[in-house]
Amino acid sequence: MQNSGIDVILQGKNIQRLLFEGLFVTIEIAFISIIIGSILGILIGLSRTTKSKVILFINRVYLEAFRIIPTLVWLFIFYFGVTTALNIDLSGEVVSIIVFSLWGAAEMGDIVRGALQSLPQHQIEAGKALGLNYFQLYRYVLIPQAIRRMIPGTINLATRMIKTTSLVVLIGVIDVVKIGQQIIETSRFEFPTASFWIYGCIFFLYFIICYPLSKISKNLEAKWTN
């Protein structure tokens, strides 16, 4: 008699492999990239409030490059192109972190810029009229207000980055999706419906990483607007 499909998840080390090998790699790539991307993004966002045309132009090109060229192509450019051109050896995971960090930084820079520029000009004047210097103006008046406006966009970006890490399979990184495929392959005869259960399980794993983020975002927004 055929086994019930759901057993495939608990069979052998399958669940451990999904969680500790696959999901761990997914989370690692996503979270390191989100952190690096956020830090770089804040600096880029601040630099985009300048009047210098050169800095604005460089930032513009950078952002558009990451918006126009698909993330998958960037992964290929770095994994196959840049490594050969510079004759260096980078693992798929390192390349993934580089590409996702650069993408995150570009998008984050735009979120920070948008938030800062959406603040009323008069807030800057009110700060100056109190004698605040530029650093104090940003530290006490502008950045705290900008952060509140950045939350929805930032959470949206973070969840997009987490989901898009599924592309790293294509440069040989063994993430949660790849482990799932391996399990499905090896259980083909024993569990014909394995793909349904394994992908269902992966769906659930992505959900439990992303859902708390939207929840936090909702709570923060509610807290700041009441």
Partner: peptide, 30 residues
């Protein structure tokens, strides 16, 4: 700016700070 105070048409209090924080920002930080 420290010596010449200004009050604006639209108040321009800092919305993320309480009343007392608004008032003390200049005296404490500047």
């Amino acid at each position: 700016h420290e010596k010449i105070g200004m009050v604006f048409q639209n108040y321009e209090l800092f919305p993320h700070m309480t009343v007392i924080e608004n008032i003390l920002l200049g005296p404490l930080k500047v």
